[in-house]
Design a protein around this nucleic acid. Structure first.
Lengths: 331, 331
DNA sequence: CTGAAAGCGCTTACAG
DNA sequence: CTGAAAGCGCTTACAG
């Protein structure tokens, strides 16, 4: 358990200066500030009240919070479950809201007693990830992928399973296969799109603009999707819907409008948890287990905190489950 | 901001003794212990590190944790949303796991820097609620009702909406109306059962044992339910399924087995969030808004923390939404 | 079971 | 921008 005295000794400054850095007092030179903060993070310093020390893992929204979404719920559940065997408590942190003026990320974590962070990133989070990584604060990214940032990223590799799913549709005789992707592109959706392209080009199939449909990743998006498809000229015979809620919404709307699945349209959906079982017909899906992503994120993070050997961060691959929502292309 | 010195002065003991109480040292007389702890809670004491103070609201599982369930997810989302405009951070606490040997609830909260607790209770939680209430720690109960404990309870009053739902079925001509309830009875499910009985007896309808079906409050429970009903002699013509997941599972299984809803069986379900829109046909439901329960819980709790006037804890009532899953009794 | 006092970790007004 | 020193809140070994 490091104290301000340890850090002062190591960095060659007074304990007063260490304290100033930790509390973000303006009157410290940038070089000293950086040196001290790095040393504090490297030693896993947290403020010691009496003999107590806080043991908190934070689930951190770096951008828009999406707590309550099925994906987030599952991730959070996974992290929480994994924590059960530890002494850590779980805190949900909204970075943009919790951070004070000019406070760095690790200063904020220090202030809150956080020992390690599971970062839930969005498109604009790159700067923040770089900051955290640069400050050597123990952290992992969950449900997203940043190739250019030295943080472990825990996500499901869904490109090859997506390719496999589209291959399956092709093997059933489909040629005009559409894909629906989220209007805001993230690494996950890009992977799924890439898998689709892999399969299509490998079989010499054209992928024109009209086969790529962008809808919001929610139930309404799926409903929209079906209404668009139903009136389309030269309608595709199959579609890969890359988001769980959109897929469920699409199935629902198809039934409401009397579009027969898979008779009129073969569907492959995407599933984080068990939504594929709550629609009819049971939905062929590319699946990932979001709960296990949470568990894995904590496993990797705990190694980071204790500086154990960097156990290979095994990102579990997505897989495909075939159900009744896909069929052969109608003659 | 109280210090150990303030509490010592007020209670007429030394600061050493105050510290011992807060840290649960065994060598303090029960009377002193109680007096000091009560004073600490009354003054909203939290340990002050330097000039810092922690500001944490805890979402507390007093029994089995159910993080990840749709209901919990919605409650948590509601609490978290409400926190957005405050300075509080949210911590998820598993009481049975986080509590140390012989530690009282408020001692644990002190240790963690928690200022107020949203208690998620189960059947066996009564003792704990009494302890928290007795220790005067700011807390509210969410999603449950305990008539004999002096804590605000935030839940949806679902008895009258349940009665209304059953009345609706009766007005459609149904006479043999079944109800499905959770195998473990909690206050919510009891209310719904009471509403059912209210309607039935008011119309002079008998409610025999075979009309009361107990299944687990999950998807599998709903599937079970339908398989039981389909083979039943003297099958009911309508059923009120008092749990969201069981209701969804039942709708799914009915369709799989070719049981026509509402042709063969009228269904009224229950919904916390928006599950009623993801089954076919759209499900008539008794509804509660679990997110708003979370928001309301924080509102009441924040008043408790600051000792504002006890704003009436307005527990929002459940309501009924009529969709296609109910119809007239077949001739 | 309790208090006076020493001591720890941290912060900050003061001086340069 | 920095350090020496005073001081705050808390804990605990010691003594009774």
């Amino acid at each position: 358990m490091s104290t301000v005295r340890d850090i002062a000794k190591q960095t060659g400054v007074s304990i007063a200066t260490v304290s100033r850095v930790l509390n973000n007092h303006p009157s410290v030179s940038p070089e000293v500030r950086e040196k001290v903060m790095a040393a504090a993070n490297a030693r896993r310093y947290t403020a010691n009240v009496g003999k107590r020390d806080t043991a908190i893992i934070a689930y951190v929204y770096t951008g828009e919070s999406s707590l309550g979404s099925p994906f987030d719920t599952a991730l959070l559940e996974g992290v929480y479950d994994a924590l059960t065997d530890s002494n850590y408590n779980l805190m949900v942190v909204d970075l943009r809201r919790s951070r004070r003026n000019n406070e760095s990320c690790s200063q904020m974590f220090q202030r809150l007693g956080v020992r390690g962070a599971v970062l839930r990133t969005t498109l604009g989070s790159k700067t923040i990830c770089q900051e955290v990584a640069g400050q050597r604060f123990p952290a992992v990214v969950i449900g997203d992928r940043h190739d250019d940032i030295p943080l472990p990223c825990i996500f499901s590799e869904s490109r090859s399973a997506s390719k496999e799913a589209v291959n399956h549709l092709i093997s059933l005789g489909h040629r005009r296969i559409a894909i629906s992707i989220n209007i805001v592109e993230d690494s996950d959706h890009s992977d799924r799109l890439a898998g689709y392209h892999d399969a299509m080009t490998e079989h010499g199939l054209k992928t024109d603009e009209r086969l790529m449909l962008r809808v919001p990743a929610n139930r309404q998006g799926g409903e929209q999707l079906v209404r668009r498809l139903i009136t389309a000229v030269d309608r595709p015979t199959a579609i890969y819907i890359t988001d769980p809620m959109a897929a469920v919404g699409a199935m629902y709307e198809a039934y409401k409008l009397g579009l027969n699945i898979p008779g009129d349209l073969s569907v492959v959906g995407f599933d984080d948890t068990d939504f594929r079982y709550s629609v009819l017909p049971a939905m062929t899906s590319v699946c990932q287990n979001a709960v296990s992503l949470g568990t894995e994120a904590y496993r990797v993070l705990s190694h980071r905190i204790t500086d154990d050997k960097p156990t290979s961060s095994h990102s579990p691959a997505a897989w495909i489950e075939i159900h009744n929502s896909t069929g052969s292309v109608p003659k």
